[in-house]
Structures are given as C-alpha cells and as structure tokens.
Simulated scan of single mutants.
Amino acid sequence: MYNFHNNLNKPMLTAALIAITFSSSALASDSTWYTKASVGLSQLSDTSSDATNTAITATDNNRWDANIDSGFYAGAGLGKQISEDFSTELYWEYRTNDSDTQVNANGDSFSGNFASSIFYLNGYYHAYTNGPWHVSLGAGLGWVQEIDLDLEQGSVERSYSGDGDITWQLMFQADYRLNQNWSLATEARWQDLSRVSLDAEENAVGALDNLDYNPVSLGVNLSYRF
C-alpha cells in the first residue's frame, strides 16, 4: 500500500498544517456554517502498475499500462466560515474515469473504469473579495475509503481495490454570492497520490502495485450558508 514516509513532501506538509490549523480554529468560532454540493469533469493521467500473481500474465511479474479517459466527479461537504479570510470543511468525493488496460505479457486488453471514494479535511484562504465575488485558495488532506480498478473482457469482470491511503490536494475557487444564503462557484483542484497498491477482489487474484492516481478536476459547486 501507500508508503507515507517516502511520499511525504513540502506540499503535503503545507496542506496538513493548513487543514489542521483551520480545523482547530473552527472549533472555537461562532461563525457561519455551510453545506455544498459539487460536480464536474475529472481528468486522470495514464498510469502503469506492477502486476503480481494475477493469473492473466505469462509470468508472475509484469507491467500493466492503463489508458485513462475523461470522467466525472461528484461530492458533498460541511464547512464553517471561521473568519472573514478563512474557512474549513469536511468533504467527500466520488470520482470515476473509464479505462483501457493493456496487459503487456500477452497483449490482452481490458475495458473498465478507475474509481475512488475519498474523504478530505480542507482549508481555504479567501484571497480576494469584490462585492459578491470571492476568490479562494485551498489545500487539504484526504483519506482514501476506496480506489477501485475494474477490468472487463467479454462477460467476465475482474476487480482490484485498495483503501486507507493518505493523499493531499490544492484548490482554486471563484465564488459568486447569489444572496445571503446561496453561493455558486467554479473550482479547479489537483490531487496527488502515488505508488498505490490494489488487491484482488471479484473474479481476480494477485495484486497491482505502484499505480499513480493524480486527478485534475474542473467543476462547479453550490453552497448554502446557515
């Protein structure tokens, strides 16, 4: 699974400090709470993995290549405006991208999809305000509930899944206040998660190791403040 110490870097430490600081401040604040729902496009880079004992390949260890198409994401969050400049939130996201996986050892190709369910602790700095417009920069730490790669060939579907990894993300948001309660925003996000390991589930054996999962998101969100 994910090697936390080898992948810990300055951006991740920054995300952790921002998220923890915002979360701690929110506990002592009486400012406004909000909920939000998000939807948008998911772009995920092609990735490769080390396949071990999968019973598909001619030898025990082979390199698999996954070509990833554009997909979508949807999410929901609960947050708190802790001051004029800062807010924090708990956020859940589901993401799915179609995939075409090539097994190099024997040339087989599998359609399917690459999907994830991740919970985040996010913090935002509201860097610019002009009337109803608010521009924010954010960072967050995430816990992976599940990452799943499905392989389909004919009537057979194989599945490989992993969970428990730690990830981080950076965000940019342009928010327009429709009225006192409602806001509509455009958002862009970049997430980093490397060297993911997936274990066999349905109709599958063995494991896939060293996958990268670094999606870019472009979408909108609708928030309600109460």
Rank of each mutant, 00 (worst) to 15 (best):
L13H: 14
M12Y: 12
L78M: 06
T35G: 02
I18C: 05
K80I: 02
T14E: 04
I82L: 12
K80L: 02
W64Y: 13
I18Q: 02
T88D: 00
T57V: 10
N9E: 09
N3A: 12
A51Q: 07
N62Q: 09
K36V: 04
Y91I: 00
A16N: 07
H5A: 01
S31C: 02
L41R: 11
T21N: 09
L27K: 03
G77H: 08
H5R: 12
R95I: 05
T52R: 07
A76R: 05
L27F: 04
L13I: 12
S87N: 12
K36F: 05
N9D: 12
I68P: 09
S87K: 05
S49Y: 04
S25L: 06
Y73P: 07
L90W: 12
N6D: 10
T32D: 10
S29P: 13
L13F: 15
W33R: 06
H5K: 14
T52I: 13
T21K: 06
W33Y: 13
G40V: 04
S23E: 00
E89V: 01
D60L: 15
Q43R: 11
T88Q: 03
E84N: 10
P11W: 03
H5Y: 14
W92K: 05
L27C: 00
A58L: 08
G77K: 11
T52Y: 06
L17M: 11
L17N: 10
N6V: 14
L17W: 02
Q43L: 13
K10D: 05
Y34S: 01
T54G: 03
A16C: 09
Q81H: 10
F22T: 15
W64M: 12
W92Y: 11
A19H: 03
F4S: 00
I18N: 03
V39I: 11
D69I: 10
A51L: 14
N61F: 12
Y94F: 14
S70E: 10
F4N: 04
L41V: 07
E84M: 09
S48I: 01
S42W: 01
S23Q: 04
G77M: 06
T57D: 06
A74Q: 06
Y34L: 03
S24K: 08
T59E: 05
N9V: 01
D50H: 11
S29C: 07
G75A: 05
L41D: 06
I82A: 12
A51S: 12
N62P: 09
S25F: 02
L17S: 14
D46E: 07
S87W: 01
S45V: 04
S42R: 05
S70N: 15
N67V: 15
A51K: 07
I56C: 03
P11Y: 04
S48K: 11
N9L: 00
N7R: 13
A76D: 03
S31V: 00
E89M: 02
T59C: 07
G75C: 04
S29D: 15
S49Q: 03
N61D: 13
N7W: 13
L41Y: 14
F4W: 12
A76L: 11
N53F: 15
N6E: 09
L17H: 06
I20R: 00
R95L: 08
A15T: 14
I20H: 00
A51D: 02
A66P: 10
P11A: 00
A37P: 04
A58G: 07
